[in-house]
Structure formats: structure tokens, C-alpha cells
Design a protein around this nucleic acid. Structure first.
Lengths: 209, 209
DNA sequence: GTCTATAAACCGATAGAC
DNA sequence: GTCTATCGGTTTATAGAC
């Protein structure tokens, strides 16, 4: 075993490839957000990146794998956000920050839009270990905050933790943001505040403590 | 002007056509719910109804018009539900009943799934006067209940009525119902209750009056 | 109106030269 | 790896006989 044969650095070629793949995923992310998986075409992605379609297939073997890679990077981003949440906040406020971040991404057109009930793309996600792994990590971290917030009476203990978790996920792709944006009566900042509020406090008047 | 030339009754042929078109829209409704607009094909619709694809185009000129007709019939159904809500209920409880009905339809696989941000299908809806008319009727009726509930302190007066309206619409296609159903830990009835609850009361503990 | 057959366009994926 | 060119399959929509 010679130490010289061990990989020392990622080499220029590999770095270039990583950079190119990141640029591809940037385009995919935006196109997935704007048009959704079904209407996004590989020709569009290639044109948006500025390379030929055949070159695209040298980096990713299929359209589904592109979407899976995009979603995996999104989860990486989510985990980074979760890990940077100020530790002095209450668990409920931590969750609020995460919801706010997801809604912000959505309204900025950077939230991939994958149909929830679809075979080909969903199987691609389930068959993509990096995605599953990160999803479990994120679920674990959010789950801890949820249970803590429930124990401390910040979130309803009557609700199954699963419901709170899915509710948080669902808010990141809530069409209400699109409706309000189309209406044009509110700024993006207003819309974000309104969605975060209705997510946690619903539509009923707030209690006066 | 001879009275005999005036249309007396819808004639057997017209009645048959109406019946056939209703059967078509039944299939479209279910397919739109299961697969969404993009993945629903005209071949599937024709096969499901039991007629040839060319016959389908004798009734509806395009795929978009099919979806528009399906959505229009859904709004008709919604208006019928709204008009049958018991008048002795409070405005908030009336709205709750409507939300419950929408979620029930969703979880039963009878809620057409149209992408909210799509040009071709959205323009088809906007260019379909019957749809627009019914949407305005529904908005007007729900808007009255919302304002009344806000005046009486049943719903938050701090929220724009628009936000409450869109929130109610959005709950009918909330992916949380699909997530919970996939998990398999809850019955359909449980899921409906949970979604209605989180829609109106959010995730925070209920106040004890 | 209903059918069979087909046109016309689009899309995912690949071949092969460089 | 990147390109041009193209294959193979699918989809919307229509033509034309009955």
C-alpha cells in the first residue's frame, strides 16, 4: 500500500465537474419550481445551463435522477439551516424559523415542485439512498423539536407529532402563497408572515395571555 | 313565429349527449385526482369511459376544455353544498363544514388536481365563463361568512379575508392528507378531522375557555 | 356520433464523430 | 466530455369511412 496512490485532492477535472453539476442543479431547481417535474424538459435544462442535451446525460443518467439530485441538495440546504438555528430559541420558534425559510424559498421560485402522488419520480427518490438518509436526518431533528415543544405546551400535545411534521413540510409548497402573490395585494414579506402565522395559529383569534 | 318551432323539451338525443358527457366528466374527475392534469392522457379518458378517442373530441374540443368542464362541475357541486349548509350554524361552523367537504373529496380521490402555476390550463379556466361565474358566486358566499365570522370574533379579524378564503381553498388540495394516508397510521375519518382542526386552529394548544 | 387509422409534434435517451 | 443528429416511443388532435 503506497500512500502516493491514495487520493490527495479532488483534482482540477473533478472540481470542474462538481462546479458544472452545481450549475446544472441550479437550473433544475428553478425549472422544477416554475414548471414542475412533468413540464420540465431535458432540452430546457440543457439550454438553460448552456450545454448540449447529450452532455447533460454524461452527468445524470435520467430525468428522474436529476430531480432526485435536486431534492437531495435541497435537503442538504435544509439541514444546514436547521443546524444554524440559534440554540437559545424555544423549540417552537426554531420550527417557525424553518417553516419561514421553506416558504421564503417557495415564494422566491427556488422550491422544487414535485407532485406528491406520482410513481416514477417518487420511486426515484426512494431508490436514491442519499435522499433517504438526509430525509431521515431532517425528520429526526425536527421530531426532537416537535416533541420538546409539545412537552412544554408550546405546541398542541393532542396532535400526533407526525401531523405537525407533515404540516411543516406541506407549508413549503402551499399554493396559498401563489394565490396571494397572483392577487398582488401583498408583498412577499407580508405573504411569508401570513403563511407562517396561519400554519401555527390557524384562522381563529389569538388568545390574549 | 310558430310556437311549434320553439324548443319544447331537450329531446332524447340531447339528453343522451348530456348523460354521456356526465359520464366523461366522471372519468376525468377521477383521473385528474389520481394522476393530475399532465399525466392524464386522452387515450386513458376514452378507454375509461369506453368510447374512442375521436368520439371524445366530438364532445370536448381539447384536453384543457375537459379539465375546465370538470372544474366547473366541481364548483357547481361546491355551490350546492354551500347552499345546503344548515342555516342555524355559526358562520365559522358553516365554513368548517365546507372545508370538511373539500378534504373529504380529496381523500376519496375525487378532487381534480390541477397545477396552480401553469399557463395552458390556467388560461383555459380564465377563458371559460361558466367557471369564472361560479367561482365568483362561491367566493361571494364564502366571503360573506368570513366577514360575519370575523365581526363576531369567531375568526381572526387581524387576517385579511382574502387569506382566509385562499386558506380554505388550499386545504382541499393539501398534500398532508396524502402523506398521512401513505403513512397508514390513521383512518380517513381521522385524517379529515386532523386537517380541519389544523386549518382553523393551527398547531398551538387550544385555549381553555 | 362512433369508429379505425394516422398525422404532426414533442420528449427522453443514445450513437458516433471530435 | 462536448457536440450534432437521430432513434424510438408517446401524446394531442384529426381525417375519413360508416
Amino acid at each position: 500500500m503506497n500512500a502516493a496512490t491514495a487520493p490527495k485532492k479532488p483534482s482540477f477535472k473533478q472540481q470542474q465537474m462538481q462546479f458544472r453539476e452545481n450549475a446544472i442543479l441550479d437550473s433544475v431547481n428553478r425549472l422544477l419550481s416554475q414548471k414542475g417535474f412533468d413540464l420540465m424538459t431535458m432540452d430546457e435544462v440543457a439550454a438553460d445551463v448552456g450545454i448540449a442535451k447529450a452532455s447533460l446525460y454524461k452527468h445524470f443518467p435520467s430525468k428522474e435522477s436529476l430531480a432526485a439530485a435536486s431534492m437531495t441538495r435541497l435537503l442538504d440546504h435544509s439541514l444546514a439551516v436547521v443546524n444554524q438555528v440559534p440554540s437559545h430559541l424555544s423549540s417552537k420558534d426554531k420550527l417557525k424559523l424553518v417553516v419561514r425559510w421553506g416558504i421564503t424559498l417557495h415564494i422566491q421560485g427556488e422550491m422544487p415542485y414535485l407532485p406528491s402522488t406520482r410513481s416514477s419520480i417518487q420511486q426515484a427518490l426512494l431508490g436514491h439512498p442519499p435522499y433517504i438518509e438526509r430525509l431521515q436526518d431532517l425528520t429526526t431533528q425536527l421530531g426532537e423539536w416537535i416533541l420538546d415543544a409539545q412537552e412544554k405546551g408550546q405546541l398542541s400535545a393532542a396532535l400526533p407529532a407526525e401531523v405537525i411534521l407533515y404540516s411543516i413540510f406541506a407549508r413549503a409548497c402551499d399554493p396559498m402563497a401563489d394565490f396571494l402573490k397572483m392577487g398582488g395585494a401583498f408583498t412577499d414579506s407580508d405573504i411569508i408572515d401570513l403563511l407562517v402565522h396561519t400554519c401555527f395559529d390557524g384562522l381563529t383569534p389569538l388568545r390574549v395571555d
